[in-house]
Amino acid sequence: MSQPLIELREVCKTYNDGQPNAFTAIDGISLALEHGRISALRGPSGSGKTTLLTLLGCLARPTSGRVRIGDEDVSALPERFLTELRRQRFGFVFQQFNLIRGLSARDNVMLPAFPLGQPHAVLSARAQALLERFRLAHRADAPVEWLSGGEQQRVAIARALINDPDILIADEPTANLDTRLAEEFLQLMAELHADGKTIVLTSHDPLVLDSGLMHRIVTLRDGRVVDAQ
């Protein structure tokens, strides 16, 4: 891998910039993440892991510094293009899963593809295939709030994959899971890695960090990288 897939250079993120309550959550981080790897961000609560993920995942723009995805500098792109980029290249698994209540599992999985305007039948079949892959086919028509935590996370992963992105981003994926489900999650990550996905996740769960699955573990503290093995 000559060129890193995601590259941060001197990135800072200051919340409420210019106001009295300004807070610098990311303080000059430079980091390169390679294609096809599983990377973990670790650090105590409040160290800026989630903030860093939003910068990597183009959910937010850095206050200063550069973010490159592939060979594109995205730090200055307008919102519209960021959205498109997000849709094409990233799949997100949020800490609270962030599924839309009241909609069926299948509808939730299909959502990220709606703006692309493919026929409903095509999307529906693709969502169904993903749900089958995650052993959720029998729950496809159930409203998501009826599903268990593990099932909800699998729906969230399926949703992240519907547009076939090359980067998967997961924030504290095992925080709400018991050991068995956490291991199952790692198993899934291994499969996705085998499919060639690049995975970035945050965690302070030893089960994840010590699983041997992580190619790279970046440790953060107070918005700085203290250890990037």
Partner: peptide
């Protein structure tokens, strides 16, 4: 779980 022969196309 009820058996679903094909991904249903609702």
């Amino acid at each position: 779980a009820p058996f679903r022969p094909l991904p249903s196309r609702p």
